[in-house]
Computed example of a mutant assay.
Amino acid sequence: MQRTIGEAAKAAGVSVSRLRAIANGALGVSLSRWRLWQALQTALQHLAEGDSVAIAAFAAGFSDQAHLTRSMKVTLGLTPGAVLAGVGLREGS
Rank of each mutant, 00 (worst) to 15 (best):
Q38A: 13
V29E: 12
V14L: 02
F58R: 14
V74T: 14
N24W: 01
A59N: 11
L84A: 07
T79V: 07
E49L: 10
G6L: 09
Q38L: 14
Q45D: 14
G86Q: 05
M72S: 11
V16I: 13
V29W: 01
S93H: 05
G77D: 03
A57Y: 09
A82Q: 08
N24E: 15
G77H: 03
G28A: 04
L78Q: 01
R18Q: 14
M1D: 12
G86K: 05
H46A: 12
L78E: 00
M72K: 01
S93K: 06
A23W: 01
L31G: 11
L89V: 09
K10N: 03
L44R: 05
R90H: 07
T42P: 05
Q45I: 14
E91F: 06
A8F: 05
A82F: 02
Q65K: 06
R90T: 13
V16K: 07
G25L: 08
G50A: 15
A57G: 12
T69M: 05
T69N: 12
L36V: 13
T69C: 07
L19K: 02
D64I: 09
G92L: 04
E91C: 05
T42Q: 14
T4F: 04
S52I: 12
I55Q: 13
T69W: 01
S30N: 10
R18F: 00
G81Q: 02
V16A: 01
T75C: 03
V74M: 04
F58P: 00
R18Y: 03
A48G: 09
T4N: 07
G61A: 12
